[in-house]
Structures are given as C-alpha cells and as structure tokens.
Computed example of a mutant assay.
Amino acid sequence: MKAMAARTEAKDDDLVALARRGDRDAFSTLVARHYDFVFRVAWRWCGRRTDAEDIAQEVCVRLGKAIQGFRGEGRFTTWLYQLTLNAARDHGRRLAREATRVAAYGVHALSAAAVVEPEPEDAAEALWEAVRQLPPKQCEAVLLVYGEGLSHDAASDVMGCAEATVSWHIHEARKRLKALMRPVREE
C-alpha cells in the first residue's frame, strides 16, 4: 500500500526511469496520471469522442514501446504531446484513406468516419470545429497555445520549430478563423 502511494506521488522523471527498467507499476501510474491529458489533446485535435478514445488508446500502446526512447532531455509532458499529436495525425490519415477507399470502391465499412456527428451546440465547440479546419501546423499551434495553455516557447518545443514560427502560425490562424467564423456570427 505504501509503495503504491509512493508511486502516485513520484515525479514523472522518476516513474519514467523505473518504467524504462521494466517496472509495470510505474508505467501504469504514468498512464493513469496522463490519460486525461492525452484524451483532451486528442479530442481537441479531432473533435469526436470515439476517435479521441481510439487515439488515446493508441498513445498508451505507443508509450509502452517508445518509453525506452525518452531520454529526459525535455519534460515528459512535452514528449507526450508529440506522441499524442503524431498518433492523432496518423489516425486522421487512416480515416482519410478509409474515406477515399469507400468513395473509390464503394466499400462499406463501419468506422468512426462514417458516424455523423451532431452539429456544434455552443460557440466554443463551433470555434474548435473551425480550428480543426485550419492547416495542420496552424491547428497544432492553436491547440497547444489556446487549448493547452502553453507559452509560444513551450509550443515551439513540442512542434520542433522556432518560437517565432509558432507566433506566425497563431497570427495566420487568427486571420483564417475570423474568416471561418464570420458566417456563424452573421446568422
């Protein structure tokens, strides 16, 4: 009981070190601690609960394989952002391929892409839906800065680019969002 409580209070770096050595309890603690965060990032990226759940599960699987590659040169959560965004992008590409196959060959497959999502109910959801229509890098910058509350500097670490580049993506995203949201405001 004390060992489990100690693991729950342990720092991420300590848990990562233990997990890299094969400690399953430490790995489970990491997953439990960060699952909601991973799900939230995935949901903001794709906007669909079922897809966000699939992405979060994929991240957990990938984390088990990839944790050996985490060297602690940055924060664990920064690395986890990257892992989550990569899984979200891969999921989106899979859905796009599935939709293309269905359209091209008339293949009928039940997938999350085939489920009709309800229209956004409030202004915040409408805004996130518009964010998801932005070019990928702009979407990612907005997700990290406004969705997750990261500074431009921290977002640049996640995105692997200069802080000024993040600022530019945010600037361009604001311009596009004004145009995308204009029809909503006029209704």
Rank of each mutant, 00 (worst) to 15 (best):
Q133G: 08
P120E: 03
C46R: 15
S156P: 03
A109L: 13
A56T: 06
L127D: 01
Q82V: 11
E125N: 02
T100G: 06
K175V: 15
S156A: 10
E186D: 13
R89T: 09
A66H: 10
A88N: 04
V145H: 08
H91W: 12
G64D: 03
T165P: 02
K65A: 12
V38E: 00
A52C: 02
A114E: 08
A52H: 00
P118N: 11
A141D: 01
L80I: 05
G149R: 12
K65S: 13
Q68I: 07
T165Y: 11
S111C: 01
C161Y: 03
E119W: 13
A114I: 00
A113D: 09
A112V: 10
A126L: 12
N86Y: 08
H171Q: 10
I67S: 07
A130S: 14
L80C: 03
A42M: 00
V102D: 15
P183F: 05
E121G: 07
V61N: 02
D122S: 04
H152V: 12
D54K: 02
K175P: 01
E129N: 09
R24V: 10
N86S: 14
N86I: 07
R132N: 06
V59H: 01
A104K: 14
R182Q: 13
C60G: 15
R101Y: 08
D14W: 00
A104G: 14
Q57M: 03
I170N: 01
C46S: 15
E125S: 12
M1W: 11
G160H: 04
V116P: 11
T78C: 01
L143Q: 04
D25E: 11
R174W: 05
C139G: 15
R185P: 00
A113N: 05
L30W: 01
T78F: 02
L95R: 11
V41Q: 00
A5Q: 11
